Amino acid sequence: MSERWGALGWLSAGDGYEVALLEGRVVARSTSGRAAGRQLKSLPKQVREHPEAERLRRLAEWLDRHAAACLAQADTWMVSSLPVPTGLVAAVWPDEAWQSVLRDLVVVGDDPEEAGFLRDVTASGELRVVNLDGETVRLSPRTVTLPHPVLLPDLDELREFAAELGIVQRVEQIHRATWARPAEPADRVAEVTEFSGGGFASRFGLAARATTLGYRVSGGYVTCAVRDGGGVTEASVWIGEPYWDGETETGGLTWQGREGRRLSEREIGPVAWSEGMRMAAALYAGRTVEEGRDA
Rank of each mutant, 00 (worst) to 15 (best):
A272S: 04
V192K: 14
G166Q: 10
A162K: 01
Q169K: 09
F200T: 01
A177Q: 14
L158G: 07
A235Q: 07
G205H: 08
C224G: 08
V168A: 14
T212K: 14
M277K: 12
W179G: 03
Y243I: 02
G257E: 09
E157N: 14
V217G: 03
W273V: 03
Q169M: 09
E234M: 12
I239M: 08
R203L: 00
G231Q: 14
G269P: 02
G219L: 06
Q169C: 09
L206R: 05
R170N: 14
G230N: 06
E247S: 04
E160Q: 15
Q169P: 05
A281F: 02
L155C: 05
V168W: 11
T250N: 12
F161V: 08
E172P: 05
E259L: 07
A190Y: 10
V237R: 08
A235L: 08
T254W: 12
G252S: 07
H175A: 02
E157R: 15
F195R: 07
G197Y: 08
A163H: 13
G260K: 13
D228G: 11
A186K: 15
A272M: 04
V222E: 02
A207S: 09
E191V: 14
G257S: 09
A208N: 15
R216L: 11
A180Y: 14
D187T: 10
S274P: 00
E172N: 13
W179Y: 09
P185A: 08
V171N: 07
